[in-house]
Design a protein around this nucleic acid. Structure first.
Lengths: 214, 214
DNA sequence: AGGATAACCAAACGATCGTTTCATTTCGCA
DNA sequence: TGCGAAATGAAACGATCGTTTGGTTATCCT
């Protein structure tokens, strides 16, 4: 059988090593021996060690941002947007766990290359806009500071890399639902209000290019 | 004037360097030159580079755990316990920002030495017990999975190290209050219910050694 | 088939790092 | 004042790392 692309093997080995030991503590020999070749041979695929980091991280980073972009262009009510954004975030973290973990631990901290900080800022701003929609429409009147509320949500989601493991006892869907209920409804329950989880209706209501109010 | 203890200078320089560049990417020469001495001379204070990491991190880690231990031994209602635990967590992150950041980025990830994971687990279990109290008493009936809800809260709190900076425009107290409102009440407001923030009453109702139900 | 190109081997280099060693200076205290 | 210990200077070590180089093998295309 034609064995799968060597490049993918390298990226996966690099991602796994970066996640477990961190970028700086991972040597090229670790990665090379994991795929069964000499460390010098890696330079047929890369120009530097950092190339591996960016290659590992680019895919999921763009995907998670694009999904939020699409969601922001719909005219769903803010409550539903928050719910879907949460589900989307959790699911991408689930299906690209190793890569996403490397991003959050190595890129979103320390390294502040303008390309990546721009992505982080856009993601934050898009989510904050949704929260502001809810504040303006009166739905989210508990929010005194939309940015802080948004960062609280992002923190809960990104912290998943510290405890969630794909294939564990906790399924990604239940975690997402619990997060939604918690953020929309809070710990304390009110009796009425339609804020509990429902099965997701995959409607795709894309507005024809709505201008985003930053 | 008698200049402050050299040991403190070393720890502070190490903490700052570890937070900005990470433990592995920080060289002993970085730390030595920051305090104005040769890297070899550091070995009059330490036995290895890792000693610096543990020395940086031990203080706040024990403090934040002890505060939650004391709070758990009171008989305050669960809502008030959550509020105080949140405030305490934010305040320690604020006043020991650099040290706590190093802990969360270098210890709570990768390194899994039994001493530290035991602390992490105890903190998580104590907080989860509070949530369970609220579930059992019927106050937190929105919670279907107490552990997930607890980890959501911890995630929001610990993610502060990624965006909060002491002395910035956002004060630690307002952040803590917004977090409390968000987690107790959710984004969507109900009209009644006493879940909004109040000025903190410093009552210290310590029960005489209550047995903790793990 | 055969030549070009990609893939990989194997070794080495130069730099950096944590650590050790020993000499020297500074400081507390009798 | 002088002595012993603590603190720092200064240099070197062995190991490891990212990267380079040049040669060898495998693969693909016409």
């Amino acid at each position: 059988m034609p064995r799968p692309s060597r490049w993918n093997e390298i990226i996966e080995a690099a991602a796994e090593a970066f996640r477990t030991n961190g970028f700086a503590a991972t040597s090229l020999e670790d990665i090379a021996s994991a795929v069964g070749m000499w460390k010098g041979s890696l330079y047929h695929y890369i120009n530097s060690k950092e190339d591996l980091l960016f290659a590992v991280v680019r895919g999921p980073a763009e995907e998670i941002l694009n999904q939020l972009r699409e969601l922001s262009d719909t005219d769903l009510p803010p409550t539903e947007k928050i719910r879907r954004a949460t589900r989307s975030h959790v699911q991408i973290l689930n299906s690209n766990f190793v890569y996403a973990s490397v991003y959050l631990q190595e890129i979103a901290g320390r390294r502040k290359l303008p390309e990546w900080t721009a992505m982080d800022r856009e993601y934050l701003n898009l989510l904050e806009s949704i929260v502001r929609e809810g504040v303006d429409s009166g739905e989210f009147s508990a929010v005194t500071n939309p940015r802080v509320a948004t960062l609280a949500l992002i923190g809960s989601l990104n912290w998943l890399t510290h405890w969630y493991r794909p294939g564990g006892t906790l399924h990604a869907d239940e975690i997402a639902d619990q997060f939604c209920d918690l953020f929309l409804g809070g710990l304390i329950t009110r009796k009425t209000q339609a804020s509990r989880s429902q099965t997701v209706t995959p409607l795709k209501t894309t507005k024809p290019r709505a201008k985003r109010t930053a």
